[in-house]
Design a binder for these strands. Structure first.
Length: 481
RNA sequence: GCCCCCAUCGUCCAGCGGCCUAGGACGUCGGCCUUUCAAGCCGGUAACACGGGUUCGAAUCCCGUUGGGGGCGCCA
């Protein structure tokens, strides 16, 4: 049997980190077992579904490197893989259920339902609708003829219970006295989530349903529908949810939750994937930075953690730095070039590109986020340096600053224009004036880059070039007064 | 209110009855390196929620309490 999993987001929002993690676990599971990943769109809620969200979900999945074998945009034997195109199919199943007695047309009013809830609260029992207002078939037909279609509810067998073996949580049991006769087809003829999702899982021959824990208590409903369809029940796996740092459900107020936000703030997809994978699963051997291929090799639903994880990006930031340092110098330099061009709003000349390539490894070593990288080398490409006033105040007000700047100007004229040449000249100059490296070099750094924080000085000087370096030292000297 | 799930350092994860004086990672603190900032290296800090059982022996099994999360819609 081929394993078939699905990821079925509703396009009612951007793909968020929790959804991304669910998709990833599905993907890791099915790639591990050599099965098929189906992507469908659970868009029965046409009011809230938008094309923008639909596109964002696909983009984000692709960015994460999660590919699918069947479904949205790639096609397959089951049509568009959009639930909004399958309302006829859902209605057909619902009506067949009515025919077989598995479901019924219901006549309960909202007041009736409220009364049941109130009764339950008063008696300390579950607020469960038990079908007491179900319509006789003749009555239902009469209402339909009059143009007033009642909703269809599933007849949950009571007494009874549904138990299943969850791949991550173990055996779970729900007594049917706690499961109410849920609506499967609304009075406007549209299917509810329970119906549409389950019918799709059956029709698409899904073997493993891996999803968030928020639907754990709906699972008996899905199993009941599956049984009523005469289909074989898939294996369910419910993943714990992600919480915010305060332990509460992850939401907007905890900061960015959309995958795209991480992409935009300079995270690498490899790092995000690794971090998400580790958040609730362990590859074993006390290892955490693990390449994707290795994750596929080791992934196992049984090893997925049951407890909810706090989504804390501190470790993600560290991990992103690790992945940046893992990039080949060529790749990083190329990415840096693009980033700088965007930052500057223009293309770089070949000479500029060369000096950037020379400095790139030094920047790569320090980077945590791709977005912080362009500003660090901006000094290479500007005519007018903007000084960071805090830096200036810290290093330019000492007596050594002026001496060092003056001495450096002279030293630079004669220096061999290489890292070693510049270093030798500068160190000799400092020694001559009996200035420590710390006191003497920092003013040069600020004069050259505008900030007391920069890539290493000697390489930076070489990259900026003799003429421009001298000009910057003189400009700083003038500014000191 | 009812149902379900969960419970190890601040955070993530390891531990699946003896190997635990509980391990790794991030963070944090201290040190080394050093031209800044990082990176790197070394070291420290810090947890089995509580109470009962079961067992020769429990972080590991069972029950209860407490705490957290989820669900209880003609939303998904």
């Amino acid at each position: 049997m081929t394993f078939r999993v699905r990821f079925a987001p509703s396009p009612t929002g951007f793909l968020h980190v929790g959804g991304g993690r669910t998709a990833l676990y599905n993907w890791l599971f099915v790639r591990h077992h050599g099965g098929e990943f189906i992507l469908r769109s659970d868009d029965t809620d046409s009011e809230r579904s938008t094309d923008e969200f639909r596109a964002d979900i696909l983009d984000s999945l692709r960015w994460l490197g999660i590919d699918w074998d069947e479904g949205i945009e790639v096609g397959g034997p089951h049509g568009t893989y959009r639930q909004s195109d399958r309302f006829g199919r859902y209605r057909e199943v619902a009506e067949a259920f009515v025919g077989s007695g598995a479901a019924y047309y219901d006549g309960a009013t909202s007041d009736d339902l409220k009364q049941i809830r109130d009764e339950a609260a008063a008696s300390g029992t579950s607020p469960v609708y038990d079908g007491r207002h179900r319509l006789a078939i003749e009555e239902a037909k009469k209402q339909i003829a009059e143009g007033e279609t009642p909703p269809i509810r599933f007849a949950v067998p009571r007494p009874g219970e549904t138990r299943f073996d969850d791949a991550v949580r173990g055996e779970v049991v729900f007594g049917h006295s706690n499961v109410d006769d849920f609506v499967i087809l609304r009075s406007d003829g549209s299917p509810t989530y329970h119906l549409a999702s389950t019918v799709d899982d059956v029709d698409y021959a899904i073997t493993h349903v891996v999803r968030g824990e928020d639907i754990l208590s709906s699972t008996p409903k899905h199993i009941l529908i599956t049984q009523a369809m005469g289909a074989e029940q898939p294996i369910y796996a419910h993943l714990s949810l992600l919480n915010g740092p305060d332990g509460k459900k992850l939401s907007k107020r905890h900061g960015d939750t959309a995958i795209r936000a991480y992409r935009e703030s300079g995270f690498l997809p490899t790092a995000v994937v690794n971090f998400l994978a580790i958040l609730g699963w362990s590859p074993g051997d006390d290892e955490e930075v693990v390449p994707r291929s290795e994750m596929v090799k080791r992934f196992d639903l049984g090893a997925v953690s049951k407890n909810p994880a706090v989504f804390d990006t501190t470790k993600l930031e560290w991990m992103n730095g690790v992945y940046i340092r893992q990039m080949s110098p060529e790749t990083f330099a190329a990415d840096l070039g693009d980033l700088v061009a965007t930052d500057l709003g223009r293309d770089l000349s070949p000479a500029e590109t060369q000096s950037l390539v020379d400095l790139a490894p030094l920047v790569q070593e320090r980077a945590k986020l791709l977005t912080e990288v362009a500003p660090q080398v901006r000094f290479l490409f500007v005519d007018e340096l903007e000084y960071d006033e805090t830096s200036w105040g810290k290093v330019m007000t000492t007596p050594e600053a002026q001496v060092s700047l003056q001495g450096a100007a002279t030293a630079m004229e004669a220096a061999e224009w290489t890292h070693d040449g510049v270093e030798t000249a500068l160190r000799a100059m400092l020694e001559q004036h009996e200035i420590s490296a710390r006191k003497g070099l920092q003013p040069l750094r600020v004069a050259l880059t505008g900030s007391s924080v920069s890539p290493p000085l000697f390489e930076s000087i070489v990259a900026v070039g003799r003429e421009s370096t001298l000009a910057r030292f003189e400009a700083a000297l003038r500014r000191i007064g």
